[in-house]
Design a protein around this nucleic acid. Sequence first.
DNA 1: ATTCGCCAAACTGTGTGCAGTTCGATTGAC
DNA 2: GTCAATCGAACTGCACACAGTTTGGCGAAT
Lengths: 238, 238
Amino acid sequence: MSEHGPPGATLSETLEIEGVEEAARSAPRSISAADRVRESILTGQFAPGERINEVHLSRALGVSRTPTRAALHALAAEGLVDYAHNRGFTVREFPMQAVLDAYQIRASLEGLACRLASERGLAEEQRVAMEQALRDGDVILQHDILTEGDLIAYRAMNVMFHDAILAAAQSRMLMEAVRLTLNMPGSTHRHIVSFKHDDVRRRHDDHHRLYQLIAAGEGWRAEVLMREHVIGLAKKTV
Amino acid sequence: MSEHGPPGATLSETLEIEGVEEAARSAPRSISAADRVRESILTGQFAPGERINEVHLSRALGVSRTPTRAALHALAAEGLVDYAHNRGFTVREFPMQAVLDAYQIRASLEGLACRLASERGLAEEQRVAMEQALRDGDVILQHDILTEGDLIAYRAMNVMFHDAILAAAQSRMLMEAVRLTLNMPGSTHRHIVSFKHDDVRRRHDDHHRLYQLIAAGEGWRAEVLMREHVIGLAKKTV
DNA sequence: ATTCGCCAAACTGTGTGCAGTTCGATTGAC
DNA sequence: GTCAATCGAACTGCACACAGTTTGGCGAAT
């Protein structure tokens, strides 16, 4: 199964095809393929509305059409590509309004997660994660200006915090619904979410308050604050 | 491809395999297969947690493993089955708490849909559908006791009303998220949603108020009322 | 009697060939 | 020059065969 790379590469074949053999040791090709194609779509390697050719994509991934199709079906399920019978897959388009709507949906869902977390309590694991995230954010914000590295660390901290709340809500369906709202081309996010120091500080302050409210069992207040917190991400503060 | 039915039928082969040829005329096998398996799961033909054998299921459906696997992957995306590498698919379990949580999630999402619908206005098509649904409900509720036929008509009316609001929200992602919450074994719903005359009347009254609020552009009030409306479905009123 | 290791049957993962459909190009008429 | 019909290349849908993994059971050793 080696010697896969075709020399003449078309547009969709710009995917990296390194490290196939060690990664394929335990991971199924279809999963690995889905991950890589998802990454390509999220980073904007594919043009929105572009039709995806199974054969070309298969070659680019170094696998046959079967796992490729499985991967594309999985991505269709996640909402990243569209599927039409006898016409295959196309990259889904995300107009600006759809991206803004996604923040509204996520705000409602994560607000609900906060309420459920408040009612059901924080397990030790989630409490630790949230406290760690709060400390990490505090450290980052001590810097007067935020470097690119700071922003990377901030994003990791942010994911840890929000994931902990979702875990505390103890609802798999809620997690899946939130994931739907996160699966969209990330390049767009940069244009939406502000990373000015004051805005970041305000959002981190929200985190502190959210932690307090959830720990205190103030479900409704936590829900409302989280909704505002997430919606605020999509406010144009340029 | 005829003469498919194996005589010795195992558990998973109790699916109906009638009308294959006329249905397969234009519809792809994988879609048709997904629909039928989904129906089987929703009506409780499969035991929760049961492992799904691809070969047996393929024979029961009268197609090969390829479209069967595609169908199962699609159902996994909808959240009806779980998938594990090298272990295939299992029927997802829905504990009572998960079903109740689904109503909470749906309440948040449909509440948001009401707000968006209020802001974006009702297109003629949705306005007509909602008014029709309201009239249908009025007629049904004139009966002093509700027959089984009344309940079927009520459910159809209910779907029309809620779908119209979702359409008015103009967010595909929101529709998909709501669909997640609706995809669960329906038999359970019967035990949760009350169909006593007074409860149905109260819910229909909610619909009238929701229509008024949305038409009046009262987004926030419509959102709150819809949340209560949906959560009320899961309240045990036995 | 229990546990560990091994083996075989069954099942899933993947590659590949063929059939049916779609879509673009080419040719012809107007 | 424009439009339509037709043909062909390309692509998708499906079936099937083979390879790798899991899993249950059997037997031997402790």
